[in-house]
């Protein structure tokens, strides 16, 4: 398929995934913050791991990082922040518009409806009056889009690139959500307290992981089990391990029908990540420093995205026209 279109497919899935993740994360955090006795600052870490600390403080000051209203408004509506839900939906819709011939009519209608709704007065009113329902609507639309995508478009290369985009977005978002909790709780994560329980439950909720988690680790809701689950569980659709596995698999599918040269660097990069991750146990990860590990996951997956860009989307920079063949 056309490289530019493949790139747009990759990014479309990242944008929709990102919008859905933030809707979940903001909703869960707002609910958690209702419980005043937990008393830790829920909002500051959110701004930090979203990577928006600098532009945010420039506009609103450092103090505002703890102000629920300001942070929520920023991460939901700010048109200039690439992480806001508004920007993600806008980008998803604009990207979908340029690949309508590759996706399906239903995909377009789903994303366009969501965009028109987000721009409407009724969305604004719902945000003001019933925030939980507002985020719920966004989450449901995100899931609807994923289902529609799966059910209506051709499962071939374009689809694979969307799957890769979605998987890598999940790797980085799950890592960020875990990192938020480590920020919130500080280094001392040995002892289980009500605060910790609530925090780890919130982390799981942010990843729609509560029930899957309890199937694995019946009653042990603590840093070790939650982080272990979100990092290593091979079967949970938002765990880091699962999504790296998926990425490797999808990349192989894409490369299968092409020359072995194309995509070699990407395949190697994802294998390298998997090798390092699989060599670790959760205890080693905690001992070595969870924050460092998560930072590595975020950086390495960003690097992997660049490699995929170079391999599949920007190849003409690397391949001389002399190699062109009919």
């Amino acid at each position: 398929m056309i490289s530019r279109v493949a790139q747009n497919c990759f990014w479309l899935a990242r944008y929709t995934e990102r919008a859905e993740t933030y809707a979940r994360l903001l909703d869960v955090t707002a609910t958690l913050a209702l419980d005043g006795s937990l008393a830790t600052d829920q909002w500051r870490p959110l701004v930090i791991v979203s990577g928006e600390e600098e532009p945010f403080t420039k506009s609103f000051g450092v103090e505002a990082m703890s102000d629920e209203e300001v942070v929520l408004r920023y991460l939901t509506w700010n048109a200039d922040s690439p992480m806001s839900i508004y920007s993600s939906v806008r980008s998803a819709r604009e990207t979908m518009r340029t690949i309508r011939e590759t996706g399906s009519l239903e995909m377009w209608e789903t994303i366009n409806d969501l965009w028109l709704w987000l721009c409407s007065r009724s969305a604004q009113r719902m945000y003001d009056e019933d925030r939980h329902r507002f985020y719920l609507h966004l989450r449901e639309r995100g899931m609807l889009f994923e289902g529609v995508r799966h059910a209506t478009m051709l499962h071939e290369e374009a689809y694979e690139f969307m799957q890769i985009g979605a998987a890598l977005e999940r790797v980085s978002q799950t890592a960020r959500i875990l990192d938020v909790k480590y920020h919130s709780l500080g280094p001392d994560t040995e002892r289980e307290t009500p605060v910790e329980t609530a925090q780890w439950l919130a982390a799981l909720r942010s990843c729609s992981a509560v029930e899957p988690f309890f199937k694995r680790a019946a009653n042990e809701l603590e840093a070790r089990t939650v982080a272990g689950f979100l990092l290593f569980d091979p079967g949970f659709p938002r765990s880091i391990r699962h999504n790296l596995d998926r990425t490797a698999l999808r990349l192989e599918a894409v490369r299968l029908s092409s020359s072995p040269k194309i995509g070699a660097a990407s395949a190697r990069a994802v294998q390298d990540m998997l090798v390092r991750l699989n060599a670790l146990t959760i205890d080693e990860a905690i001992a070595e420093g969870m924050h460092e590990l998560l930072t590595w996951v975020i950086d390495a997956s960003a690097e992997l995205c660049h490699t995929i860009e170079d391999d599949f989307f920007e190849w003409e920079a690397n391949i001389a026209p002399a190699e062109a063949s009919g």
């Binding site: 398929m1 056309i2 490289s3 194309i262």
Partner: peptide
Amino acid sequence: ELVEGSDLFVDDDKVYVKTTRGP
């Protein structure tokens, strides 16, 4: 296919589209 100018190139007076699998 829907293409933009930058998706195409000409080599030896033949037109190619840049795809994920090469020209």
